[in-house]
Design a protein around this nucleic acid. Structure first.
Lengths: 253, 253
DNA sequence: CCTTTCCGTTTCTTATTTAGAAATGATAAC
DNA sequence: GTTATCATTTCTAAATAAGAAACGGAAAGG
């Protein structure tokens, strides 16, 4: 999974990223000690990096509790980055209507570094899963958006993907062998959409649709719901609506 | 405007941020030379930092053109950061309805480091301004959201704000003296909303409403439109709708 | 009210890392 | 096929970083 073991320039930069990632994955704002313990750096070093990160507006510190958290200044970078792939402006009206017509949550994702990055979501009024966050990542092999995209991959691309990926179990239903995955993708291709039946998260059922035109893969969208709300009648209806949405989107590209 | 001139730790980190900012403000993906010239660093140093940033998934490089751009991985940090101020979940349904009832673009902003950061926007179907981007920043003194918030500041807070801010002209209409600004804020307070009459961007007229409860200021929202669509009749109607939205939001906090 | 403990912060010095001039490749332009 | 332009590598003096240790200050415990 890694090629060049050349030592990287910018030790401080690498450590700073470790800190940012630690903050990203913290439920509550951590203190210096928590951070330095958490990543195994000494307190002085951690403090110095944090102080600089604060001066650069990457993190903020609560003066009272002395706890650190990510600064909203970071928003700008991510938004700019996602503009490059501006599927969003094309896709938003359609997916927003699809949310209304299905009553379920719609996700929009793109591939980044062999994973799916959640680019946008259109939440159903009845949903209260905050599990996923814009910018969040998930496996391709265990998610409906990922499998929708994989089903559009060439053999070479697929081989390369498998080469760089461990099919680790995420839930009891996760597909963990290349053969099973390839078979599933074959079915997906025939059916025109992918199915994630509690493979990424227990109790959650998704169907995924790839956004592709003239061989180019732009991304995928999915409809997510708790399994009990995805009986076969409902699912049939949702798939129907989603296929129309997919067609509409592809026409607009 | 700066207090401690203590030298900062983490030279590379500071330079890395310069590069990220350069990418943030580039219209098109720049090459190594453009970046190094643009920020006045030597090519070897710039290249080394960029290589590390690429390894850390902060930037991506187009293999063909060798141009760099920000990586979507950055999305996650900003989104996490903005969760801290989760006005958004409270405010979204109301503002989205306000967009529909007014037919104009609604912005949601918070204060960060004496500036307004655009946290979300609800775009009118008829709008094609891409001027503003989520995460983008604007002056408090020249924007309706900023002035709405300033009008809720105490005298001490206001003095501190003025102390840290240069009232620079952004457009011919920008307010550039403390006295004029204070007078405008007085009017704003009486009226219950702020007005930005081409003070931040020519041809653009906005009204701004602060979101505050029990002395705490959560943020502000604004309605933005090209000036020709903001005649006094329309404006009256919009203000009416917005005041209802403001009330509804504050009740939900 | 004193003692202890627990963090955050500062100091200091060796070891590591960096910065950039110069040289070298690679590619495109002429 | 020569030149120009940009990307990349090499190398080493000079700048920076890392962490042990000591310090400070606030809160907890007796």
């Amino acid at each position: 999974m890694s090629e060049s073991t050349n030592k990287l320039y910018g030790t401080v930069l690498i450590r700073a990223k470790e800190i940012l990632d630690y903050l990203l994955n913290s439920e509550t704002a951590p203190t210096l000690k928590e951070i330095s313990d958490g990543i195994g750096m000494t307190k002085p070093t951690t403090l110095k990096i944090l102080t600089t990160l604060e001066a650069l507006k990457f993190v903020t510190r609560d003066e009272n509790t002395k706890a650190y958290f990510l600064d909203v200044s970071l928003l700008a970078y991510g938004e700019k980055a996602s503009e490059e792939f501006d599927i969003r402006s094309i896709v938003t009206p359609t997916l927003s209507r699809l949310r209304d017509s299905t009553g379920e949550t719609i996700n929009l994702g793109i591939v980044n570094d062999n994973e799916i990055v959640l680019l946008d979501k259109f939440e159903s009024p009845q949903s209260i899963f905050l599990k996923s966050r814009i910018g969040g990542r998930m496996n391709m092999y265990s998610s409906s958006m990922g499998k929708a995209i994989l089903s559009a991959y060439s053999d070479t691309e697929m081989a390369d993907y498998l080469d760089h990926t461990d099919l680790k179990k995420v839930t009891p239903n996760t597909i963990t062998t290349s053969d099973a995955l390839i078979a599933d993708l074959q079915t997906t291709k025939g059916r025109g959409y992918s199915v994630d039946d509690e493979e990424n998260e227990v109790d959650i059922f998704c169907v995924g649709f790839v956004i592709t035109k003239y061989q180019k893969i732009y991304g995928a969208f999915s409809i997510t719901a708790p399994k009990f709300r995805m009986g076969s009648e409902k699912r049939k209806k949702i798939v129907q609506l989603a296929k129309e949405a997919q067609k509409e989107i592809i026409d607009k590209i």
